[in-house]
């Protein structure tokens, strides 16, 4: 993670103020967070005030100003998942990953979040890891699913 890498991302998007969000998304995707050095560099290269960069970086939930894990785990607690035992699935995931919703483990392996609906209620209880949907989960199957992510 160095300035040169941030510069490459910035150059790919043309170093235009209008590309601010796209650049931040790309840095977020690569590092799973927005390091302070990245915000400084982006503000400087695009000629965008730091206040604006921070406003946007804190506005969207896609951005994180603290390091996130390599794998993003979303456990659905929507109505359909809830009645099919999502709470127990969440408990199993919490125990397996050793973190509460909103937290990231010390090895930066997982970040855990709860969501209110993933739009595939027929598959409930549902969990999404890095965009891949795991459906019809039992607590044990949910804990198992985590094992395939390093």
């Amino acid at each position: 993670m160095d300035i040169a890498e941030f510069d490459r991302v910035i150059d790919q998007h043309g170093a235009e103020p209008s590309a601010l969000i796209q650049i931040l998304l790309e840095i977020q995707r690569r590092h799973h967070w927005l390091p302070p050095a990245a915000l400084d560099r982006v503000a400087e290269r695009l000629g965008v005030p730091m206040t604006r960069v921070r406003h946007i970086a804190t506005f969207y939930k896609a951005f994180s100003l603290v390091p996130k894990g390599r794998h993003e785990v979303h456990v659905c607690l929507g109505t359909a998942c809830h009645v099919r035992g999502a709470e127990r699935v969440l408990d199993a995931v919490r125990d397996a990953a050793g973190i509460l919703p909103g937290e990231t483990d010390a090895d930066l392996r997982f970040s855990l979040e709860t969501v209110n609906c993933l739009g595939c209620c027929a598959l409930g209880p549902v969990m999404v890891i890095d965009g891949k949907t795991h459906g019809k989960l039992s607590p044990a199957a949910a804990a198992d699913a985590l094992k395939s992510y390093e």
Binding site: P49, T51, H55, T58
Partner: peptide
């Protein structure tokens, strides 16, 4: 931002 052009204070969240 508009008068001083310093951008020392901004909104977050």
């Amino acid at each position: 931002a508009e008068v001083k052009g310093k951008f020392a204070v901004g909104f977050v969240d």
